[in-house]
Amino acid sequence: MENKQQLPNATLVLVFGIISIVTCFCYGILGLIFGIVALIVSKQSIKLYNENPELYYGYDNLKAGRICAIIGIALSSLYLIFILIYIIFVGAMIPWTEILNQ
């Protein structure tokens, strides 16, 4: 088996996984989108690789990209939750009754 094929979407998963941490700023929404896309694509590719592993190469890229995407999702979702909590607390601290009674 000389003519090995590269796993489809392996490089895409790696790139998106790394971009998900680079763009996790600004509310973490962009990072979440990139990370989730990378995870979904990687799931399909892992299934394809497990059916016949000797056909493809580039599984290391896929694994690394998957880990990067998981961490990116975790971090950006944590950041999003932090910002939501902050907004809720600030909203609770505003004196709504005084504003409404005026």
């Binding site: 490089t11 790696l14 790139v15 690394a64 990067c68 961490i71 971090l75």
Partner: peptide, 25 residues
């Protein structure tokens, strides 16, 4: 390093990128 790895397919490139990712985070 990522662009270089995608073009030239370094040996252990993916693992190196992973550790670099942890460092960055």
């Amino acid at each position: 390093y990522l662009t270089g790895h995608l073009y030239f397919n370094f040996k252990n490139g993916a693992r190196f990128l992973k550790y670099f990712y942890f460092l960055n985070i």
